[in-house]
Amino acid sequence: MLKTDRIGEQEEDHFIKGVKDSLPTLFGYISIGIAFGVVGIASNLSTLEITLLSILVYAGAAQFIFCGLYLAGTPASIIILTTFIVNLRHLLMSLTIAPSFTSQSLLRNIGFGSLLTDETFGVAVTKRAQTGTLGPRWMDGQNITAYLAWIAASIIGALIGKWIPNPERLGLDFALTAMFVALLVLSITAANRTKIMHYLQLIGYMAVIIYFLLYFTSTHIAVLVGTVVVATIGVVTEKK
């Protein structure tokens, strides 16, 4: 490796650089975190419980699902199982970026995986597609920034949620979907034609699998199983 290449990698692998690269997604974190806090209050959770969920669970989709199940009086065992299934995609996401951190210790890799979200994963794979590498300090920068922003936004949402009795009327339950759409756009704009065709092929697989499963199971199970299967296919067949 040339000396100039090493200098370029060192500039990219900087904590502050990771913080800066995460800033565009913070607007989504703040809006969705506030929405979660409001929905949590509407689901009869306390501000402390909402804060602990954001600190310990730290999974937007799972936290929104938790609120719905909790409000419906679902047993704790079912809530835990559902959260586990919904978050299985994080295993596949972690496996996708793991090759970039093979030189790091086990503890460091656990830290990367624990703070990995759909948003930080989207930023990471976009950066890797552009630069061909990911740095551990850069990853810490964007992971920690996103984590703290999510916790703060959830607390703010919980505090103002007491004055919003019906959050669905404001469309706050759509905030998470909007974030996923934004991540999809970012991923597509950073991809070349080959990768876009690969993504379209995976979407086709997803449609076929879900259509087939709907004959045997419910919509929710079909989507979950289809997502896990297609995500696995995507990881295995991804071309560098």
Rank of each mutant, 00 (worst) to 15 (best):
residue 211 Y to W: 14
residue 141 G to T: 07
residue 179 M to H: 11
residue 157 G to L: 02
residue 179 M to R: 12
residue 87 N to A: 03
residue 123 V to C: 08
residue 208 V to S: 01
residue 175 A to E: 15
residue 134 L to K: 12
residue 132 G to Q: 07
residue 136 P to R: 12
residue 156 I to S: 13
residue 171 G to E: 09
residue 115 L to F: 08
residue 204 G to Y: 00
residue 162 K to R: 15
residue 98 A to D: 12
residue 217 T to K: 06
residue 95 L to C: 12
residue 140 D to R: 13
residue 207 A to N: 02
residue 145 T to L: 02
residue 182 A to I: 02
residue 115 L to Q: 13
residue 197 M to T: 00
residue 200 L to T: 02
residue 166 N to C: 05
residue 148 L to S: 15
residue 106 L to A: 12
residue 92 L to G: 08
residue 90 H to F: 14
residue 102 T to G: 08
residue 120 T to I: 08
residue 85 I to E: 00
residue 212 F to R: 11
residue 120 T to R: 11
residue 202 L to E: 00
residue 110 I to L: 15
residue 181 V to D: 06
residue 177 T to V: 14
residue 195 K to N: 01
residue 187 S to P: 01
residue 218 S to G: 07
residue 186 L to S: 15
residue 121 F to S: 10
residue 142 Q to I: 06
residue 92 L to D: 10
residue 209 I to C: 00
residue 192 N to A: 08
residue 186 L to Y: 13
residue 87 N to R: 05
residue 119 E to C: 09
residue 148 L to C: 13
residue 185 V to G: 03
residue 182 A to G: 06
residue 159 L to D: 05
residue 106 L to H: 14
residue 99 P to Y: 03
residue 188 I to P: 00
residue 115 L to I: 01
residue 119 E to K: 08
residue 135 G to M: 06
residue 178 A to I: 02
residue 168 E to N: 14
residue 205 Y to E: 02
residue 126 T to E: 09
residue 201 Q to F: 11
residue 185 V to L: 06
residue 167 P to V: 01
residue 185 V to S: 03
residue 110 I to R: 14
residue 123 V to D: 15
residue 217 T to Y: 07
residue 210 I to P: 00
residue 89 R to E: 09
residue 162 K to I: 13
residue 194 T to V: 10
residue 108 R to V: 12
residue 150 W to M: 02
